[in-house]
Amino acid sequence: MSPLTDDQRRTLARIGDELIPAALGMPSFTEAGAADAMTDHVLSLRPELLSDLQQALDGIAADEAPAAATARLNRDDPEALGVIGLVASSAYYLMPGVRAIMGYRGQEHRPAGEEEEHDYLRDDLLQPVIDRGPIYRDPGAG
């Protein structure tokens, strides 16, 4: 069962596209497909957000322009704007298509090979530090 009504989801889509528009080679919130199943997935993992999100969306009239609504919330109810933004951006950056455009494969399993170790010794990057010698204070030295 969907956690949002059709009206709430339409409002989320409108405000989501205002917060996350198509620009700089990135799709908008709805173009990325983040307004539907992924939003529901976010809310299933963070159920404590649902009530505040529903209340925030219900406070936006269907005929209120998205730019005017976000400006109003930012001025009068920043917590409501915050929860909409958190849910929308969380869903957006979880979309595989968005991650593919960004070149982000998630937090990768990428154990280091031994050839990656000690490169600063091979190319002497660390040598100036070694050459300068100790920098600690010895309390026994007075």
């Binding site: 205002e18 528009p21 620009a23 700089l24 400006a71 930012n74 982000y104």
Partner: peptide, 19 residues
């Protein structure tokens, strides 16, 4: 602020920071 956090600037700041 709103204008820095969202809109086109969201993509701009993410591209600037991420990676």
């Amino acid at each position: 602020p709103l204008e820095e956090a969202w809109g086109e600037n969201l993509h701009r700041s993410t591209q600037k920071r991420f990676g």
